[in-house]
């Protein structure tokens, strides 16, 4: 029954999902690369950003894509303050402390959402939910295609930011050697918070791209956080292109795993490939030697 057309369609959908996963994972990877922290609040921050889009669309009647220029800076600012005032203050850079702090933040955000918005699943209605685009033999919802394209664009912009701006240079300097960066006069604390802010800002973009084909509820972040971790490690922690290719790969593996093994057992593909990669190449696909 597995016709080639299904296989191709599944592949295309996997790639489209993977592009959004890559964007979500890039935020996480950037934070890891600079701060060396595993941010457990990443999923909860995505959830918060999704609520942000939801209210911009529902209350102000904005188009979800038009919300991007509002939500990205807003999420970035929130991320900056969150790092400066909470993560850095409470953890003082110690890694097991960061673990607890980000877990605590996730708990607070998720349950604030429960308290404020109840646990109803919320969706937005767009006029073009059923506009379909043929990509080869695959029929792709236009919103999904737009999300994938938007994610790729965001990745490119992020790359330019990291590569070609002073901020990017400072970030890379801190990522490489924070003490040396401090010595040459870089405000390391500020750069830490900026990296965290960029990580959160990518979630703002991801949320705007995701909501038209998905939904938001207080628990929605859980579905993305494990997958984002997997991608970051698979690609090589802190590696920019690692997270990007890792995202696409996981999108495809998830889709094909679901196709061949079913949507329940198929999830095993993600973790199996993850374990296999780490055992064969312990620093991830794009990671440098430890």
């Amino acid at each position: 029954m597995l016709e080639p057309s299904i296989l191709t369609a599944s592949l295309v959908h996997g790639l489209a999902n993977g592009a959004v996963y890559a964007l979500v994972a890039l935020g996480l990877s950037l934070v890891y690369g600079v701060l060396h922290i595993i941010n457990f609040a990443h999923g909860a921050l995505l959830m918060a950003a999704l609520y942000g889009v939801y209210f911009l669309v529902e209350r102000l009647g904005l188009d979800p894509y038009a919300a991007i220029p509002i939500l990205v800076p807003a999420a970035g600012a929130a991320g900056y303050l969150l790092h400066r005032w909470v993560v850095a203050k409470a953890s003082r850079g110690r890694e097991e402390a960061v673990l607890l702090v980000t877990l605590g933040i996730a708990l607070v955000l998720e349950n604030l959402a429960v308290a404020l918005f109840r646990s109803d699943t919320r969706t937005i209605e767009t006029g073009w939910a059923f506009a379909m685009v043929a990509v080869g033999p695959a029929l792709l919802p236009a919103a999904k295609l737009a999300a994938a394209a938007g994610a790729l664009l965001a990745v490119a912009l992020l790359w330019a930011l990291v590569r070609a701006t002073d901020l990017g240079r400072a970030i890379r300097a801190v990522a490489k050697d924070r003490e040396a960066a401090r010595l040459v006069g870089i405000d390391v604390e500020h750069v830490f918070a900026l990296a965290f802010a960029i990580g959160t800002a990518t979630l703002g973009a991801a949320a705007c791209l995701l909501l038209p084909t998905y939904y938001v509820s207080p628990q929605v972040g859980h579905g993305f956080v494990l997958i984002a971790f997997t991608i970051v490690v698979l690609g090589g922690m802190g590696s920019f292109w690692g997270a990007f290719w890792g995202g696409l790969l996981i999108g495809v593996v998830e889709s094909l795993g679901g196709l061949f093994l079913g949507e329940s057992l198929g999830q095993i593909g993600i973790f199996a490939i993850f374990i296999a990669t780490l055992l064969l190449r312990p620093t991830g696909l794009f990671g440098r030697a430890v």
């Binding site: 029954m1 016709e3 299904i6 369609a9 599944s10 959908h13 999902n17 998905y214 929605v220 859980h222 579905g223 998830e254 889709s255 679901g258 196709l259 079913g262 949507e263 329940s264 057992l265 198929g266 999830q267």
Partner: peptide
């Protein structure tokens, strides 16, 4: 019989199979 996880982020595979069957 298609079993799926909670949450499932994308139902395309399931639906493609339904389409074929």
């Amino acid at each position: 019989v298609a079993k799926h996880a909670n949450p499932t982020r994308d139902f395309t595979n399931v639906v493609l199979k339904l389409k074929a069957l």
